[in-house]
């Protein structure tokens, strides 16, 4: 299976977007090589702005660009864009509802060897709690490119969560991403996986393996965390009666929480959350880390069975 990192897809998409949309400007904070905005810089140097290692200034300047009719994409690592600059995002972007796109790479455990200081595991929760903010976590390279274009078209702040390592390409070029619309990748009747980001392809693997054991599992790609596709979740809860969420993020406040909120209010069924259990990460290869924190096909299968078992109580 071909793999491409969502950050690479982002860099490529920016170049395409910059070609068709002259209003797009790109800002970075000394990480252009890593966030892949360097590709845009190469092609359109006059529309690229390096703000230095100053993430608060990165976000504030992007706000000023948006106020002057530009569509700024501001990039850094997820931990710095949402952590260091949280209050700038809240007060200078989201509160005035400005057209700033925060495209943050190196989210989650799969940052790998850099370790816990660089592994954002709370960014979805933080961004989701801010009014006006749209939160998108693409599952693969194809969806990333689509999401970049959709974000540019959308009027208002967007948080785009991207990753470092290659992830399997699950979508064909004909796939059309829409903000706020979940994509049902696989139908199933006994249990439903609701996954986001890199966990989507792992959920697909788990569903396939469960089939061999006679368990019929659905997979829903929840690539927009906010606004959340409530209808798709309620529908899946009704048809399967048990859900398992999967995210490369703290189980507090992210996708699992969002799904549990909807299910609890509209169609109570068991929801088991797979994610990092409120601990910091550590150094390791992405594969080692995913295994260590249970973000694996095997754990998803196990949780699916537990969720099915809970239906009776």
């Amino acid at each position: 299976m071909t793999k491409i990192a969502t950050r690479d897809a982002y860099g490529n998409a920016l170049v395409k977007l910059g070609e068709v949309n002259q209003d797009v400007v790109v800002l970075d904070a000394d990480l252009a090589g890593s966030t892949k905005t360097a590709k845009f810089r190469e092609k359109y140097p006059e529309r690229f702005f390096n703000m230095g290692i100053a993430e608060q200034n990165l976000i504030g300047t992007a706000a000023g660009f948006a106020l002057s009719g530009k569509i700024p994409f501001a990039s850094s690592f997820a931990i710095f864009a949402t952590g260091r600059a949280f209050e700038q995002v809240r007060n200078s972007v989201a509160y005035p509802n400005l057209n700033v796109k925060i495209a943050a790479t190196h989210a989650g455990l799969t940052v790998g060897e850099d370790g816990a200081s660089h592994q954002a595991l709370e960014d979805i929760a933080i961004m989701r709690a801010i009014p006006n903010m749209t939160v998108i976590v693409p599952a693969d390279g194809v969806e990333t490119e689509q999401a970049v274009f959709a974000a540019a078209k959308h009027q208002g702040p967007v948080y785009l969560r991207l990753g470092r390592p290659g992830v399997p390409v699950i979508y064909g070029e004909d796939y059309r991403f829409e903000i706020g619309k979940a994509n049902l990748l696989r139908t199933g009747t006994q249990v439903g996986f609701v996954a986001t980001g890199i966990m989507v392809s792992i959920a697909l693997e788990a569903a396939e393996a469960l089939k061999a054991e006679g368990i019929d599992a659905a997979v829903l790609n929840m690539s927009t965390i906010k606004p959340l596709d409530q209808e798709a979740i309620i529908q899946l809860a009704k048809t399967t009666g048990a859900l398992v969420t999967a995210e490369e993020h703290n189980i507090l406040g992210g996708l699992g929480s969002a799904v549990a909120e909807v299910v609890g209010e509209h169609c109570p069924v068991p929801v088991l959350r797979v994610g990092v259990k409120d601990v910091f990460g550590q150094s390791g290869t992405p594969a080692e880390l995913l295994a260590e924190y249970g973000l694996t096909k095997e754990n998803l299968m196990e949780k699916a069975k537990q969720a099915i078992a809970k239906k009776t109580c």
């Binding site: 200034n57 504030g60 300047t61 000023g64 106020l67 002057s68 530009k70 700024p72 200078s92």
Partner: peptide
Amino acid sequence: VEMSTGSLGQGLAVANGMALAGKLD
């Protein structure tokens, strides 16, 4: 009102963005 402010320290960066956009255009 050109910018929502109140949290101190943030306005100059926003003004920079406006000025940069003016130069670009």
